[in-house]
Design a protein around this nucleic acid. Structure first.
Length: 482
RNA sequence: CGGAGUUUAGCGCAGUUUGGUAGCGCGCCUGCCUUGGGAGCAGGAGGUCACAGGUUCGAAUCCUGUAACUCCGACCA
């Protein structure tokens, strides 16, 4: 039997067409559907629950670092965008506008928010009088709209869900520390929950957030070698404080501008989980984010069901009591083989098979989604074994992704080498850069690879600019990107 | 926003060249039978052929326009 026969029909193999594979998987796994509105998707329950799981994990971390949630309006007055020059220029092309209510035109147009720095900056200016009012540490869970020219489910949609943290501080140092702290929170979340290794670094000036002094990012590698920006954290300096007049009276009785930050992660991260861990059988979810961590599948003909089913039900209870998210598919509509493929496609990390032959041996079969390995476990050991197995899978998935990242990151001395790395070897290219925008632009023009970030911890330090060969001021990751 | 392609049943597709009764596989419904890697048999339901115009006795098929999706570029999380 060809191995392919075991795979789910209608999923294009990754090696054949990665983009096609991605679309097939999200459709077959029932994560989303296209909507009647261009570029806007429906998050179906299985997809939305992934986001809810991300929300839970992130929200806990935000609270632990002293932040509180609030909610600001969806609509932002046009004049607000004018107050920070780079900001308005950066977002203007993709803003939708509300221009009238019923048949009556509005005095001032309202933008549907692309991000909330402006309206939050305005509110902060009202709230801050004294250094005692600082810092303000607020996060918002919201939807935002950016009318993208080219959309792709989860990765780039016209409306998307995210969280945006907005903080204001009395000193530059405090604000910079906040920016770094939140980048660390995102790193912890990506690596320890999503099992996605990330590269921390600073964006080049041409790639930074419009209006920021400095933008930091986490870059992750998808299985096709393209980069995906997993999260950003911006140090805004006093740019927005000056634009919105966020001033406070300090201890020394001087009026000063506050320093602000913002940081965000979006539903795009769901796309990252899919493209980092998925394979030709479908989704592969890290246990810590999987909605169902173990799926119990009772096996056997009708006459044995009476024996098997109670044991299966009991196993569900025992596993649940061990703190594991477990489900059971006892339906008689589909064959066991069908169920095996179905839950593999949906990414469930562990399958538990129990049938008459197992009962005779007082055992069950555990099957790992990541390796396909089968493991026979005595029934009375299941509650002990399953949580450990899930941890092993979590770790193995991270190690595998990390290994992939390391194998696909190489230094480049010339533009040609960058071209080969990013277009033929599914790799990121590490290159020296003199700091000139023109050199950075030339790389993009000739290779399709953009600068991803200037890593905090480059594996090697490059000494000359990959374009002009002058002395390198920075060592930069270049990659094709989503 | 430019270039290319696609749009026919829930899903995947044929049919369009050369206009003439709307097809196939999977799925779905009924029944029987089956269950350790997407089983089998029999019967059945389901489509204003993306949308809007036009040509024609007659359009899924030819012409014009619009939209959505996919891919490749420019812009972005």
């Amino acid at each position: 039997m060809a191995k392919d026969k075991e795979f789910v029909k209608e999923i294009t193999p990754q090696s054949e067409d990665f983009s096609r594979w991605y679309i097939d998987v999200i459709k077959k796994a029932d994560l989303m559907d296209y909507s009647p509105v261009r570029g806007c998707i429906v998050f179906k329950p299985d997809g939305y629950e992934l986001w809810e799981a991300c929300q839970r994990e992130l929200d806990r971390r935000f609270k632990e670092t002293g932040h509180r949630n609030a909610y600001f309006p969806l609509l932002i007055p046009e004049s607000f965008f004018q107050k920070e020059k780079e900001h308005v220029e950066g977002f203007n092309p993709e803003l939708p506008w509300v221009t009238q209510i019923g048949d009556d035109p509005l005095e001032e147009r309202l933008a549907v928010r692309p991000t909330s720095e402006t309206i939050i900056g305005y509110m902060y200016s009202q709230w801050v009088q004294s250094y005692r009012d600082l810092p303000i540490l607020i996060n918002q869970w919201a939807n935002v709209v950016r009318w993208e020219k080219r959309t792709l489910p989860f990765l780039r949609t016209s409306e998307f869900l995210w969280q945006e943290g907005h903080t204001a501080h009395a000193t530059q140092q405090e604000a910079e520390e906040e920016t770094t702290r939140m980048l660390g929170v995102y790193t912890d979340f990506c690596e320890n929950v999503l099992a996605i290794p990330v590269i921390q670094g600073q964006k080049t000036p041409s790639e930074k957030f419009p209006g920021a002094v400095a933008t930091y990012s986490l870059e992750a590698m998808m299985k096709d070698g393209k980069a995906l920006q997993a999260a950003t954290s911006h140090y805004l300096g006093d740019n927005f404080a000056r634009g919105f007049d966020i001033q406070f009276l300090d201890r020394d009785n001087e009026r000063k501008y506050a320093y602000t930050t913002s940081w965000g992660m979006t539903t795009r991260i769901i796309g990252a989980v899919i493209m980092v861990h998925g394979d030709d059988r479908g989704l592969q979810l890290p246990p810590r984010i999987a909605i169902t961590q173990v799926m119990v599948i009772p096996i056997g003909p009708a006459k044995t069901r009476e024996r098997v089913l109670p044991v299966a039900q009991d196993l569900v209870k025992v596993i649940k009591d061990a703190g594991v998210r477990v489900g059971i598919d006892a339906s008689e509509d589909n064959s066991p083989g069908w169920k095996f493929n179905e839950y593999e496609m949906r990414g469930v990390p562990v399958r538990l098979e129990v049938g008459p032959r197992d009962l005779d041996q007082h055992q069950v079969v555990l099957v790992r989604r990541d390796t396909g390995e089968k493991e026979i476990v005595p029934i009375d050991q299941v509650a002990n074994r399953v949580p450990d197995l899930l941890e092993e899978i979590q770790q193995a998935m991270f190690d595998r992704a990390k290994g992939y990242l390391q194998e696909h990151t190489k230094p480049a001395m010339t533009i040609e080498e960058i071209h080969t790395l990013v277009r033929e070897q599914k790799s990121f290219a590490l290159a020296g850069w003199c700091g000139d925008d023109a050199c950075e632009a030339k790389v993009k023009e000739e290779t399709g690879a953009s600068s991803r970030n200037i890593p905090f911890a480059p594996p090697t330090t490059m000494t000359s600019c990959v374009v002009c060969q002058n002395e390198a001021k920075h060592t930069v990751w270049f990659a094709r990107a989503y």
